[in-house]
Each structure stands twice: as structure tokens, then as C-alpha cells.
Simulated scan of single mutants.
Amino acid sequence: MAVAQDTELVGSLVQLMHKLQDLYAESSRPLGLTPQQAHLLCVLLAGPFGMTELSRIMSIERSSLTSMVDRLERRELVERQPDPADRRACRIALSAPGTELAHQAHTAYTDRIAELTAGLPATQRKAVVAAIGVITES
């Protein structure tokens, strides 16, 4: 019986992941961004990061990240800044228009999630938050 419950839980989490990815894509598209570009801009809201760290955070190869940064830089949404700790490296930071677009992307995404969860009773909300906390902390 435990295996069936685990399969049901895993299946539900996979469905949730796909739903959230779809919402991210739907939220990014009207802003002229791919979901990956929106993700990068939102990550950069926390401040400039080096390419190695961004590659790890986003779970993508550095070559793919470099191409994405190049495209966003051409759109003047991000900029390369010298890394004070390593003169051969650079850090990627949001430009002013990039910061504005990152906030728009984040708000669009969180608003969609809020719409999806609006009908959950308070007790279910608390249970979901607690379960997600346990899953993400492990």
C-alpha cells in the first residue's frame, strides 16, 4: 500500500511541476521572454552573480548560459560587470530595464499561482505550505 501512496504522491508532484512550468511559460511569453530568460532575470533580482554560480543555480551548461546572457545583453536587460575578486571573470547584473522586466515577470508568475490557489481553504493552504517546506528542505 505504501508503494501505491508513494506513486500517487510522486505522480501528483510531477503534475504540479508541469503545471508550474506551463504557468511560467504563459507568464513569460507576453513579456517577450522565454521561461529560461525570465528565470535568469528573476534570479538576478538577488544581485549580480558570476557565470559559474548562475550555471549552477539554473542547472544549465555554461555555454547555454553564455548564449542566453548574450541575447539579454543585446536587449540591454543585463550587463556584464567586472568581478572584483577575479579580474578575468565577470558578474552578470540586471540593467534598469532588466530589473523592471524581472519584477514584471515575477509578479505575473506569482499572480497566476495565487489565482490557482485562491480556492484552497486555509487548512489546506497550511498543509501544502508545510509539506512543501519539508520537501524543499530535504
Rank of each mutant, 00 (worst) to 15 (best):
R62S: 11
R62L: 09
R62F: 01
R62P: 00
R62M: 10
S63D: 13
S64G: 10
S64D: 11
S64E: 12
S64Y: 07
L65H: 04
L65Q: 05
L65F: 06
L65S: 06
L65T: 02
T66F: 08
T66Q: 12
S67Y: 08
S67D: 12
S67R: 15
S67W: 06
S67K: 14
S67H: 11
M68W: 01
M68H: 03
V69A: 08
V69N: 05
V69M: 07
V69D: 05
D70R: 15
D70Y: 12
D70K: 14
D70Q: 12
D70A: 10
D70W: 08
D70G: 05
R71G: 07
R71M: 07
R71Q: 13
R71E: 14
L72Y: 02
L72D: 01
L72M: 10
L72F: 05
E73N: 09
E73Q: 13
E73W: 01
R74E: 13
R74N: 08
R74W: 00
R74K: 11
R74Y: 02
R74L: 08
R75Q: 14
R75Y: 05
E76P: 00
E76K: 13
E76N: 10
L77H: 03
L77E: 04
V78D: 00
V78T: 11
V78R: 00
E79I: 03
R80K: 12
R80Y: 01
R80E: 07
R80W: 01
Q81E: 13
Q81P: 00
Q81I: 13
P82M: 08
P82I: 06
P82A: 13
P82S: 14
P82Q: 12
P82L: 09
P82F: 05
D83S: 12
D83N: 15
D83H: 11
P84N: 10
A85I: 08
A85K: 15
A85L: 15
A85D: 15
A85R: 15
A85C: 10
D86R: 14
D86I: 07
D86F: 12
D86Y: 11
D86S: 15
D86C: 11
R87M: 11
R87K: 13
R87D: 15
A89Q: 15
A89V: 04
C90D: 09
C90Y: 12
C90A: 14
C90F: 13
R91E: 10
R91Y: 03
R91T: 08
R91G: 04
I92K: 02
I92W: 01
I92Q: 05
A93G: 06
A93C: 06
L94I: 03
L94C: 06
L94K: 04
L94P: 03
L94S: 04
S95Q: 06
S95K: 08
S95L: 02
S95V: 02
S95N: 00
S95C: 08
A96D: 08
A96Y: 00
A96V: 04
A96C: 00
P97R: 04
P97F: 05
P97D: 05
P97V: 04
P97W: 02
P97M: 05
G98Y: 01
G98P: 01
G98D: 05
T99F: 09
T99W: 05
E100N: 06
E100A: 12
E100P: 00
L101A: 09
L101N: 09
L101G: 09
L101F: 07
L101M: 14
L101I: 07
